[in-house]
Design a protein around this nucleic acid. Structure first.
Length: 555
RNA sequence: UUUCCUGUGGUGCAACGGUAGCACGUCUGAUUUUGGUUCAGAAGAUCGUGGUUCGAAUCCAUGCAGGAAAACCA
C-alpha cells in the first residue's frame, strides 16, 4: 500500500483526464498491430502499457488489426498475434479490424470531398514527391488541387468502382502545401490497389492510408488514449485535423519511445529478412526477439511482463541492456524451474572403490527454493559417471574448487570423492578420471566430517539418456546492429547457435513441454518444439550467473 | 541548416522550486551440498553558459549534443 510507485507520463495524463472528468472518466485503449509480421518484445512493451492502463483504470482495450495494406498482410500473422497477446496474459475487449470500417471511412472521405477538403490527384508518385518540397523548402500545388467538388466526387466514385489502374489516381487531403510539417502537405488518403484483401476479399480496390484509417478507427471505437511510438509525432497534427474536419470522436494520440534491446534488431522488415533468407529457423527461432521466439527459447510470460514493467515508459530514445531481460527470466525460473542434472561436455569418471555392477538410487528435490522442494526424483548412481570436462584440471589454479589430482569435491546429491589418478590419450586429452569415494559422506547422512568447497553435477553412465542441446548466444555481434555501417546482416554472430549432444539424467526423458528446467550449474533449459520421445531436444533459455567465469576472465 | 522530440551514474527509470532515489550492471564481503539463490556493503550521475529565486535536475534565455520528419508502408 505504501510503496506508491511513481507514475509514468502516460499514466499521469490518464489520471489527469480522469480527474478532469474527460469522457466521464472512461479509459479505452487499443493495441493496433498490422498483420504483416510476428510480434516482438517491443510490441510486448506496448501491449503491457495499453492493457495495463485499462486494467489499472478500470477500462478496456481493443485488439485492432491495422489491415489497410492487403499486399503485405496475411491471416497467418493475425493468428500468431492473437496467440501471442493471449500468451502474454491479456484479454481484449473486442477483436476488431480497420477493414471492418472501410465503408465508414469511405464515407468520411466523401464528406471531406464535399467540404472541399479533399481532391483527386492524377500525378504519379514521383510527381507528388517532387511537389512535396523538402523539410526546408515548401511544397507547391498542382493543377488537380483546384478541381471542383463535383468532379472530385465523380472521380473518387470511379476510383472505387475500379475504373482506374493501380497508381493512376490518389485521393489527397487539401491541407497546406507550405506547412513546415511535411505530413500536412496534402497527404494521400486513398490509393488504388487491385489486390485481394485477407478479410474483404475483392470488394475494394481502393484502400485508405494509415493516416486516414488509424485515427478514424480510434474515433469509431471511441478510443480515449491512442498510444503510439515517437515516429508518429509529426502525424499528430494531421490526426487532429481529420478529427476536427470530420467532427468525430476526439481520440487523442500520445507518443512514447519504442523499445530497443542490445544485440538485436527490432524492425519487422529486418526480422522478416532474417526469416526469408534463412538466417534463422523461422519467426519463432529462439534467437529472435519475437514473442514466439522467446517463448520457444523458454522465456515465461511473467518474466516478459516483469521486464516491461522494469524498463518504464518515457519519451527519450533508449537502448536497454539485454542483461535486464536475462535477469528477469532468471529471477522467475529460479523460483519455478525444476532442478535436474545434465552433462554438456562429458568426460568419464570411475569410482575405483565402488563395486562394479552396483546401482544406488539417490534422491534429489525438484526445487530447493520452495519449502518441501516440490517433491523430487530418483537419481541412479553407479561406478561410472560422466562429469563436465571443465570440472577437472590437471594443473588447477588457486581458488579452483573442483577436481584435480588429489583434490576432493562433492558429487551433488551423492558422495564426496577424491581424485586419485587420470588417464590421457596420445594427444594429451583427459579421457578418464579415477576417484575414490567416501561411503559415509552420502548426502543427507554425512558422518564423514569432511568439508569440501566445491560441488559438481554428474550423470551415471549406464543410466544416462542422450539429448540434443541447443546453446544460444546473441544473434548479433555488436550492441546496436542497426547503427553499424553497411548491411545489418554483416553483423550477424556466426556462433549464435551451437548444437551439442549431452548426457542427461533419466528423469528428463519425461520432461514436460513448456516447463523450465535448471540443469544444475549450467543454466535454464526447456524442451524445443522439435523434441520427440525418441530424440530429446532442449533449448538453453539462459545461463546461470557464473562468478567463476568472471574470475577466470579477470585472470 | 526548416519544424518537432529528447538530454540525470555504464544502462533504464524516478525526483513535478526544497537532502538527487530505485533497479540492472560493476566491485567488496558473508552464507551456501548449484562458483546459482540469499544477505550485508561500496563506487558511480543532473550537457555547457547566463539569468529568475532564500533555494534550480526542475522555470527562462542561449549554446551544444542526440534523434525524428520528404514511402500510393504502418
Amino acid at each position: 500500500m505504501s510503496e506508491e510507485k511513481s507514475l509514468n507520463f502516460i499514466e499521469e495524463i490518464v489520471e489527469e483526464d480522469i480527474r478532469a472528468g474527460k469522457h466521464n472518466g472512461r479509459v479505452h485503449t487499443r493495441f493496433p498491430p498490422e498483420p504483416n509480421g510476428y510480434l516482438h518484445i517491443g510490441h510486448a512493451k506496448s501491449i503491457c502499457l495499453n492493457f495495463g492502463l485499462a486494467k489499472r483504470y478500470n477500462g478496456k482495450t481493443n485488439l485492432r488489426f491495422d489491415d489497410t495494406n492487403p499486399v503485405t498482410e496475411d491471416t497467418e500473422y493475425v493468428e500468431s498475434i492473437k496467440d501471442d497477446v493471449c500468451w502474454l496474459g491479456f484479454e481484449w475487449a473486442n477483436e476488431l479490424y480497420a477493414s471492418d470500417y472501410f465503408d465508414i471511412i469511405y464515407g468520411f472521405a466523401m464528406s471531406l470531398i464535399k467540404q472541399g477538403l479533399a481532391y483527386v490527384d492524377d500525378s504519379t508518385a514521383e510527381e507528388i514527391a517532387a511537389q512535396k518540397g523538402t523539410p526546408t523548402e515548401p511544397g507547391t500545388a498542382n493543377q488537380y488541387r483546384s478541381r471542383s467538388i463535383e468532379e472530385n466526387v465523380q472521380l473518387f466514385e470511379e476510383m472505387k468502382a475500379g475504373k482506374y489502374p493501380d497508381g493512376a489516381k490518389v485521393l489527397r487531403a487539401k491541407v497546406d502545401m507550405a506547412s513546415p510539417n511535411m505530413h500536412m502537405r496534402d497527404p494521400i488518403m486513398y490509393r488504388i490497389k487491385h489486390a485481394h484483401h485477407h478479410r474483404t476479399g475483392d470488394k475494394w480496390c481502393i484502400y485508405p492510408m494509415y493516416d486516414f484509417a488509424h485515427g478514424q478507427s480510434d474515433a469509431i471505437e471511441e478510443i480515449t488514449h491512442s498510444i503510439c511510438t515517437l515516429e508518429f509525432i509529426p502525424h499528430r497534427a494531421l490526426y487532429e485535423w481529420f478529427i476536427e474536419k470530420l467532427e468525430i470522436f476526439p481520440s487523442r494520440q500520445y507518443e512514447m519511445a519504442r523499445l530497443n534491446l542490445t544485440y538485436t534488431v527490432m524492425s519487422k522488415r529486418k526480422l522478416l529478412q532474417l526469416v526469408n533468407e534463412g538466417h534463422v529457423d523461422g519467426w519463432d527461432d529462439p534467437r529472435m526477439p519475437t514473442i514466439s521466439g522467446l517463448r520457444r527459447r523458454g522465456y515465461t510470460s511473467a518474466s516478459i511482463r516483469e521486464f516491461c514493467d522494469r524498463i518504464g515508459v518515457a519519451k527519450r530514445e533508449n537502448l536497454i541492456d539485454v542483461g535486464l531481460l536475462e535477469f528477469c527470466i532468471r529471477e522467475d525460473l529460479n523460483k519455478t524451474a525444476w532442478r535436474r542434472m545434465a552433462v554438456l561436455d562429458p568426460v568419464k569418471l570411475v569410482i575405483t572403490n565402488y563395486p562394479e555392477g552396483q546401482d544406488d538410487i539417490l534422491h534429489g528435490e525438484n526445487n530447493p527454493e520452495v519449502e518441501g522442494g516440490e517433491g523430487g526424483r530418483d537419481i541412479p548412481f553407479s561406478r561410472e559417471l560422466y562429469i563436465e570436462r571443465e570440472d577437472f584440471m590437471e594443473v588447477p589454479p588457486k581458488k579452483f574448487f573442483r577436481l584435480g589430482p588429489g583434490l576432493m569435491v562433492r558429487l551433488k546429491h551423492a558422495y564426496i570423492i577424491k581424485c586419485e589418478d587420470f588417464v590421457k590419450d596420445a594427444d594429451g586429452n583427459i579421457t578418464e578420471i579415477h576417484c575414490s569415494y567416501i561411503p559415509e559422506s552420502k548426502s543427507g547422512q554425512d558422518t564423514s566430517g569432511i568439508h569440501v568447497k566445491g560441488t559438481i553435477h554428474w550423470v551415471s553412465v549406464p543410466h544416462a539418456k542422450t539429448a540434443e542441446v541447443r546453446l544460444y548466444d546473441r544473434l548479433f555481434k555488436s550492441e546496436d546492429p542497426s547503427a553499424e555501417e553497411g548491411d545489418f546482416k554483416d553483423d550477424l554472430n556466426p556462433n549464435s547457435l551451437q548444437v551439442i549432444n549431452a548426457f542427461v539424467e533419466p528423469d528428463l526423458a519425461t520432461a514436460l513441454p513448456g516447463k523450465g528446467y535448471q540443469f544444475l550449474r549450467k543454466g535454464y533449459f526447456t524442451l524445443d518444439k522439435y523434441s520427440t520421445a525418441e530424440k530429446l531436444v532442449f533449448n538453453r533459455t539462459v545461463t546461470l550467473k557464473d562468478a567463476w567465469a568472471k574470475e577466470v576472465k579477470k585472470g
